[in-house]
Design a binder for these strands. Sequence first.
RNA 1: GCACGCUUAGCUCAGUUGGUUAGAGCAUCUCGUUUACACCGAGGGGGUCGGGGGUUCGAAUCCCUCAGCGUGCACCA
Length: 881
Amino acid sequence: MAQIELSKSYDPSQVEDKIYQLWEQTGFFNPDHLPGKRRSAFVVSMPPPNVTGILHLGHALESSLMDTAVRYQRMRGKKALLVPGTDHAAVATQARVEDELKKRGIVNPRQELGRDKLLAEIRNYAEESKKIILSQIRKMGTSCDWSRLAYTFDAERSRAVNHLFKQMYDDGLIYRGYRVVNWSVKGQSTCSDDELVYVDQTTKVWTFKYAKDFPIPIATTRPETKLGDTAVAVHPDDERYKKYIGQKFIVDLGAQKPLQITIIADKNVDPNYGTGAVGVTPAHSQIDYEMYQANKNIGIIQVIGADGKMTEAAGRDYQGLTINQAREKFVSWLKDNDLFIKEEEIINNVGTSDRFGDVVESLPMEQWFIDVNKIIPGRQQSLKDLMRQAVTIGHRGDAKQKITITPERFYNIYLSWIDNLRDWCISRQIWWGHRIPVWYGPNKEVFVGEQPPTDGEWVQDEDTLDTWFSSGAWTFSTLGWPDKTKDLKQFHPTAWMQMGYEILFFWMARMILMSTYALDQIPFYHVYIHGILRDKNGKKFSKSVGNGLDPLEIIKQYGTDALRLSLIKGITPGNDSRFYEEKVAGARNFVNKLWNISRYVLQAVAEPKIINKQPQAQSLADQWILNDLSETVETVTQLLDSDAFSPAAEKLHEFTWNDFADWYLEIAKIEGGKDEILLYVLQQLLKLWQPFCPFVTEEIWQNFKAKDLLMVTDWPQSVKAAKDKRLSGDIECFIGVIKTIRNLRSESNIEPAKLIKIKLISATKKDLLEKQREIIKKLSRCQELEITDKSSAAKDSAVAITGEVEVHLLLAGLIDLKAEKERLNKELAQIENYIKSISAKLVNEQFLSRAPKEIVAQEKAKLAEAEDHLAKIKKQLISIG
RNA sequence: GCACGCUUAGCUCAGUUGGUUAGAGCAUCUCGUUUACACCGAGGGGGUCGGGGGUUCGAAUCCCUCAGCGUGCACCA
């Protein structure tokens, strides 16, 4: 017996920090220090968590997924690199800190603190939050290379961002333009189209006329903006209104000046919807603005300002009013002047700012944009083209530079998004973020670059960049770009990326854009899309609902391995999944099982050493478990290669618990003398589990006094044991006998002590069963076992037939014959039914002629088997009379 | 409005290109306290795979249609 004492159950809290330190000390998280010759790289850029708080379950899921992938590839002999990092999350962080400040009584943080002080507050918050998050990532067991830690807002990344901006500016892809943009009044900043959250709202729609003699009625949900109307659009073929096209009307709605309304034609107007005509407000609607660009002569009047109040142009009566005040006033004015026609309630969905929560206004403004349609100098392609190609024919038509996406349905979602993509507004008026690297000189010269010229007064652009601008560069800014570093050369494109589908457009699209543009490379070869986690009732986890589960609390209670396993098991790519405590408890039970299996093996063997080569099988059971292991290795490897994490874990679980623990170990206890096989199978198992449950497996591995950490051992290879054709039949017979005896006993309510004698009668399996005699006796807990090869069923016995063996259980008045008979009759009926259905199939000519030969053969075999089974049941029935 | 996803055992979900009598975990019931583990072991019950139609020798799987739920996009005059 080995001198190893392990506690009765696994205690993660005693193990995890110690093991993580051990991993870090070895330096193996850094691919440069990995042992052995490693040619190809496997790189994952960690989706950087926002520094807006603490880690939630979504992060825990991502950590588990990417770390499992990386650990697997590290064992496969790849230069595995997981680059850790955090995201400054411009708007999200500033919004969060401003909210906090407001709670502390600072009503308007920007005004009261000023730029520098507010930035200092945000920076403090971000740094604190970052510290917490990084320690939590460690707690998850994530095997990332901390020497390459990055932050989207640190000096290196800022340099990359500025460089990228200048390059795009010089190529004419970044421009400053006056356009209608989404404006959050509350946040005092623009938002991109993708940052809008649409919410259903009950609103009224008002129908009115501009003037009593105006020929076309107009409907609107935003009456106050009508003070800025400059045109009415109708369908060019609309018989009712055709004749007015091109005419101008002067109407006075009480704005600063009477409005000149031009009737214009636009194919997008649906003549059958509403009044069939659209009042055009170029300044306060993106679509109207586009109409304005096609008909510039109509003019543009801005009646709402950046402060969310009516402007001077709205007229003396309205200037300074809020939108709601102006709306009420204008509607009552319409009524007073007999221009009002009707009002109805409708459900309208409005865009709100995802971070500030207010309904966004469309306002015309001077902002910075990325032109996604312009041909890139020297490339004959636009950014849109690049984004499309990367997932279709491959970057620049190179099939090797093609991104694959799991699951496939996201290709189309992504592509249709690109089709609708407008120029990307990248400037924000918040302060937390990369300041736009543009300076304006004393004579209004424009300088773009990192450092402004020193002559005269140069003033930097006040705005900051959309946070996704820096996130888009993440795969390469973390590897040293714009310098031509060794990292960049050997690690980019990265291998694998994962993300939730909710940031597909925000992030995946932008990474593809930036990387294909700046490096002429795709950012990664493969994307795994995961769903979001929901609670037991299918609700999203959220702070405001208060249904959040803290990963750290779960780790405290159940351990990291259990958390990781429970997150990965039972999920499918791209689909949401529910998460609740019972799942973790189940996973914890498994981890404990693994621990106890190891504990038993370590106690049972003479010396706990590493067994590298598959040992020779000594018995039927050995052969069986080795073959089974080999098959498991093959399957799990295949599954992991195709990102099927959950099925891989399930397959392993089944082998570990059902086959190895419940059957093989029980047999091994009786057969004895199996040190090498026990150690070998266990060690292979630990390797297979390492990517999923790194802590417990590494902790157990310590007991073998191996040279290397488990983390850097080689992934198991499938080694088929010598193929014995009889193997599967024999093992089935052997296990079948044990199970049968158990069944007879349990279903007949015979107490073990009263079980007197069992006869096994077999023509061909006698030797086999003689050899396994002790195992059968112990596992089935019968006291006596008589094995003969004569088929002489005693009259007072119940017969069960397994394989080629009949098990006769002497009744001795102990079996409930009635119950047994009932059971058998039920089974009989089932089988007869089954035989009927197969027989019908086998006389069906169409089946015989059209089905493939294998299938027909299969069906015939099934029939034979069933008939055999039927015969056995009948025999059993006869035997009990 | 368009698109996508989901609907399978009491619950949570698997089910790869159509082919054993549709699976797992949890829950439930019966039995079991054997020295790795009660965070355990052996068994059982439980499903006309959302409804309807079609293709096929054969459909949970492919097609059509309806319903419920969810998501994205557009519209929002």
